[in-house]
Design a protein around this nucleic acid. Structure first.
Lengths: 413, 413
DNA sequence: CTTGTATTGTTTTATTCTAAAACAAAGTAC
DNA sequence: GTACTTTGTTTTAGAATAAAACAATACAAG
């Protein structure tokens, strides 16, 4: 992308090791701009600790690379008026949030704003589904042709192996080993990144959410199943094969109902939305409630059975949070999913059940994540950006420095 | 140049003068030396990707700093004979492994070798116990006066808050909020680092053990209770307040025996050595077996009740490993503790119970850690080294560069 | 024994990065 | 206008590394 273009311009100017400091500082400045935009170069200097001169050079580079652009000059009580800089939202990513029954496709800019958004059905045929997604993406790309498309990011309801980039352990998406990444790359002509939906959601919360300075957090997604994204020491934890975070299959009651995983009484069998539907059916077998949306609507209409079913689900959610807090000791636990729509009612229930069962000495903050789909789409975009930056870093060692002239000199005295 | 060995964390390395590149490369070279010693400068260049010239300068600096020293010149099939370099084991650390009833004090060098080792009883009076430890340490320092003592590292049977450096959640060491770090620093005149025993043990395994390239691992300690050390993305996970890793208090059977934490049926109540003693007492109430050592001795003498009790413990250990594998998806699970002395017999039992209950898709390697005390002592030493290195890094932004002459120049044309 | 070649390790040179200081620009307070 | 402030750029100097030249060994072929 941009850096490649730049290398054509500058030909052989890149130097490996000073460039590390450069790249680090570039990333630091970019991050500080992102978190504080619009912001002046002087303020960036104070925030980053780098000299004004250095900041100026780096900002110039970022503008050249089109990550950043200048904005208005805002007046101050005294002194020269600063020129503010901010992220250049002409840079955009194509993203898709693929869920068991439908997918949302969108164009997201560097600030997490949406330029387009569309929905498609998801079927058990991955080729057909992806063809539709590709078609929609290409249309969107056409529509925003003046923007610069950085890549494609996909959020999936399952684990993605960080090495093979294959989807695995996706009980709610029956796409047998299919090359999603390759198909999308061929179809769109852009590089494609995949990750788990919970990871994407968590990533978006750390970028755009209320988690400044939080270095250990867990995001819990509650829908058909239970998923988690884990932030350890400020980094996403994928684990071996991308499988980390299967808290949903820890046992809450060994005599509980049989779970899809083969065990009995997994947390998921009590705390998922599917469990809530079961609780409702147990109380009121006469009315067949098929979807969680329907159940939530009933609850909002103050249907007693629906409220009881969801309350029970909320209690089990809170109870199982002990798993998370005792093992990872996060500062924050974020909860996303269907139930969060009625957080005012069920949040306190989750909190109480958690407080009642939590191991002494632990007290993570419990926070809801509203608009999880927005977060997943934004997170998918961030995965694209992150992968780019890590590519840049790991390639450092292979950039030879070629001086202008390679003249053979005489031996020195 | 960083070659994927160290990812720079923007949250910590806020600013990077060009000196940061030097510090990073210094750490890279030091790490490569540690892992490959004795090793020549040319080999270091190949392993690190840095130029021979750069490697030479950095190695000179490390020799100056006394981290490294030159060794023999070993012959090669062709060419100039390389001068090997290795860690300078004149640098040593004072370490202590404090356990519920006794402490081991030792002097450890940079290569994890022991120069002295002594044992002291541990009482419920922290002041008195620490006074004894300090006295022993000072005697050891006297005895090895020609060595350079880098600091003091302590391994403790409880969680250590990374911020306050206080011991908390140590059910087997009744030292109410006591300033261990301050007391030891005053007594020894050296800087002191504390950490949990399981973390120390894990750290030693990653430095001296069989875990090259492993970036996600968990070490399980089985003794009076159950503890864990967690390696995430190549880093120790401490969690908020240092409390991460309390897998021992996840529930295995909600109708199980009451646990010290207040809940019922925690893994610890089934899989700890204390549980093994209970299993034995249930089978054979006539003979009072007081200590796990006694039980192990009976097992070695083929006492059927002892074997049955330990087998039951091993099965529960394996069963509970599902907690660890499903949530963290480590590549390796290391097991340390009393039972490991009879690994040939009980290892397969743990492995089978684990395989029977593990969630599909997970298959971490199970490995025993023999000589856990050695590992804890070495780990305590590593904590000292790591803290030093991180101190150096975080100070980078504050290094003002003062030019030799600060002459006021005339304005340029 | 000399010459050629391979390998290690050091020295020299060129390049890039950053800090620090000087400088330039653009405003306010008086 | 003059003094002072703040922002942003330019200049200069110092630190770090790559690349190439150089120096030091060792061995083999002639």
């Amino acid at each position: 992308m941009i850096r490649g273009m730049q290398r054509v311009d500058l030909a052989y100017v890149q130097l490996a090791s000073s460039e590390i400091a450069r790249d680090i500082n570039r990333d630091v400045i970019l991050e500080v701009i992102r978190a504080n935009q619009p912001v002046s170069r002087a303020e960036l200097s104070r925030l980053s600790g780098l000299q004004r001169s250095t900041v100026s050079l780096i900002v110039d580079q970022l503008i050249q690379e089109r990550w950043v652009r200048e904005g208005a000059t805002t007046p101050l009580p005294r002194g020269r008026r600063p020129t503010m800089v901010g992220l250049n939202d002409d840079l955009v990513m194509l993203v898709a949030d693929i869920r068991p029954t439908q997918a949302t496709i969108a164009v997201v800019d560097l600030n997490g704003r949406f330029l387009s958004r569309a929905q498609l059905p998801v079927t058990s045929d991955p080729a057909k589904t992806l063809a539709g997604i590709i078609e929609t993406m290409l249309r969107m790309k056409e529509r925003h042709a003046q923007r610069s498309f950085e890549g494609v990011g996909i959020s999936l309801p399952g684990r993605v192996d960080p090495v093979t980039h294959r989807l695995r352990f996706a009980p709610n998406l029956a796409w047998p080993d299919f090359d999603i990444k390759g198909t999308l790359e061929k179809g769109t002509g852009l590089s494609v990144e995949l990750d788990n939906a919970a990871n994407a959601c968590l990533l978006a919360e750390t970028w755009f959410g209320r988690m400044d300075g939080v270095r250990n957090a867990v995001l819990l997604t509650v829908s058909e199943g239970i998923g988690t994204g884990i932030l350890c020491n400020g980094q996403l934890l994928h684990g071996d094969g991308g499988m980390a975070g299967e808290f949903g299959h820890l046992c809450l009651d060994k005599d509980g109902p049989l779970c899809g995983c083969g065990a009995r009484g997994c947390w998921e069998t009590f705390a998922s939305s599917r469990a809530a539907l079961r609780f409702y059916a147990e109380r009121n077998p006469k009315i067949a409630v098929r979807s969680i949306e329907e159940l939530l609507r009933l609850a909002q209409e103050a249907d007693e059975d629906a409220l009881a079913a969801l309350t029970r689900q909320a209690e089990y959610i809170g109870k199982g949070l002990r798993f998370i807090s005792a093992t990872l000791a996060p500062e924050v636990i974020l909860i996303a999913g269907d139930l969060v729509a009625l957080w005012a009612r069920f949040g306190p229930i989750i909190q109480k059940a958690f407080s009642d069962s939590v191991l002494a000495g632990f007290s993570p903050r419990l926070m809801p994540t509203h608009e999880a789909e927005v977060a997943r789409l934004r997170g998918a975009a961030i995965v694209v950006l992150q992968r780019r930056s890590s590519q840049r870093q790991s390639g450092i060692g292979k950039r030879p420095r070629r001086p202008a002239k390679a003249v053979k000199r005489e031996r020195l005295p």
